[in-house]
Write a protein that binds this DNA or RNA. Structure first.
Length: 479
DNA sequence: AAAAAAT
């Protein structure tokens, strides 16, 4: 097992730059692929997202680009615009001094800007197939000096029907070049493409042990019969109080509606879906990443590819259509070794989907009951206590001591502290706690539906469908 | 119904 970038053959300057951006040791895919790529071999890399594959091809490319040649020397194709942007951003991170010029080209944005970027002597181009072909046919993008060609997420590219576009581009690249394909799977169509366009490639594979990474804490809330999901969501959000969250819904319309509802409840939320223009999407993601918005309500447009650092929660307001999308969705959190929480709202209609999901991720979701006001208040008071502890360890507190001395001529210190806490409580408590009654507790009482007890679910899922004998019969027939 | 990509 290789443990340092030095031993992979990267230059000292590159390694220093890597250290500056926090890269100390190579990931498995990097350790396996970089030496071959530096040695001039074609490589097929089988690896999922989040394994560090961008650096695996970006570092050798940066190492071997000739900075004195003002022509496109590397072309990286990605299936989505989002991914193109992210790859480009990553390359810029590894290329701090900007000696090597990188541009991104994709649809939905001004083509003139991209053309002028190419004219200024771009050496690395990252792009989506459609716009790349467009620019090739306009003559704005020339590949005659190309020495590197990379296909990122090749399987996705083919799934989305880009095979003809991709072949057209590969055919226009000089034969004397180095080529790398990265793909999560190795289906026959990929193998065919590899056989056609790569020269005696070396295949490197990184095993993915689990369908869902276990640093993501997966929980579910059962939505009582007759309840709307939004009614269940609000108290859950109050209790969990996510620092940042992606909330997934099924339709664009639902995204817009839920966003208004959250905004009306005083939350920092915005929507993200296919009705938004490319620049609107980019602006929103920027605000989300800069933590100007805490929660984003999105369709499955955000299930893959979008990366937000430190995303603490993914919430499945509607369950996804496919189990694969469940894994992609929750994979937006728990990135870069951080912990994340994935919450799913389960309606009685969703039992079947839930079982498929649990089967696919090979684990049971932990069920919790919708929090009551008392629970939310308890959690909030805990948080308040933590904040007081933090203030006690600070220094700014000293400036308030004269006030306390003055008040303590009349009152006990305990009383003064409690009064101060009450003031903070009144100003900062969640909106949910200011309502007259507890709608959750009330609803449980009124409807006669027993409040679900948090259940640790073992080998089978008995509590999911109490009294429903058909459930076990269906379990055997589902695949 | 939604998503991806060239307009």
């Amino acid at each position: 097992m290789t443990l340092s970038f030095q031993s992979l053959g990267l230059s000292e300057t590159r390694i220093q730059q890597l250290e500056q951006v926090g890269f100390t040791a190579p990931t498995e895919i990097q350790a396996q692929a970089i030496p071959h790529l530096l040695a001039g071999r074609d490589v097929v890399g089988q690896a999922q997202t989040g394994t560090g594959k961008t650096a695996a091809f970006a570092l050798p490319i940066l190492e071997q680009i000739d900075p004195t040649v003002q022509a496109v020397q590397a072309l990286i194709l990605t299936p989505t615009r989002e991914l193109a942007m992210q790859v480009c951003q990553a390359i810029r991170e590894f290329n701090e001094d900007r000696r090597i010029k990188t541009v991104t080209i994709y649809g939905g944005q001004s083509i003139e800007q991209q053309i002028s970027g190419l004219r200024r002597g771009a050496q690395i181009v990252v792009g989506t197939p459609g716009r790349v072909i467009d620019l090739l046919s306009r003559g704005a993008l020339k590949l005659d000096k190309l020495t590197w060609m990379v296909l990122d997420e090749a399987d996705e590219m083919l799934n989305m029907g880009f095979i003809q576009d991709v072949e057209k581009i590969l055919n226009q690249a000089p034969a004397d070049r180095q080529t790398a394909f990265f793909s999560a799977t190795m289906e026959p169509s990929i193998r065919k493409l590899v056989a056609k366009f790569l020269r005696s490639p070396i295949t490197v594979t990184v095993e993915q042990t689990k369908a869902a990474p276990n640093r993501i804490n997966q929980v579910a809330y059962s939505v009582p019969r007759g309840w709307t999901k939004s009614r269940a969501l609000l108290p859950i959000l109050e209790l969990e109080d996510p620092e940042s969250a992606l909330i997934f819904v099924r339709t664009r319309r639902a995204a817009a509606e839920l966003t208004s509802l959250l905004q009306e409840a005083g939350h920092s939320a915005d929507e993200y879906h296919g009705d938004l223009s490319q620049s609107q999407r980019e602006r929103l993601l920027l605000r989300f990443r800069q933590q100007q918005i805490r929660w984003v309500v999105a369709t499955d447009i955000a299930a893959r590819g979008i990366h937000v650092d430190d995303l603490t929660h993914v919430i499945n307001y509607d369950l996804p259509d496919s189990v694969e999308n469940y894994v992609h969705r929750i994979g937006r959190t728990g990135r870069a070794g951080k912990e994340g929480t994935a919450i799913s709202l389960i309606h009685s209609m969703d039992r079947r989907k839930l079982r498929d999901i649990e089967h696919h991720v090979r684990q049971r979701l932990e069920f919790k009951s919708i929090p009551t006001r008392a629970e939310i208040e308890g959690r909030y008071l805990e948080k308040l206590q933590g904040q007081v502890r933090e203030a006690l360890s600070g220094e700014r507190m000293a400036s308030f001591l004269p006030i306390v001395s003055q008040l303590s001529e009349e009152y006990e210190p305990h009383t003064i502290a409690a009064a101060a806490l009450q003031m903070i409580y009144d100003k900062t408590r969640p909106a949910w706690l200011t309502m007259g009654s507890d709608p959750v507790e009330e609803e449980y009482t009124r409807s006669g539906v027993p409040k679900p007890k948090p259940v640790k679910r073992g080998g089978r899922a008995p509590s999911a469908n109490p009294g429903n004998k058909r459930s076990s019969a269906r379990a055997t027939s589902s695949k």
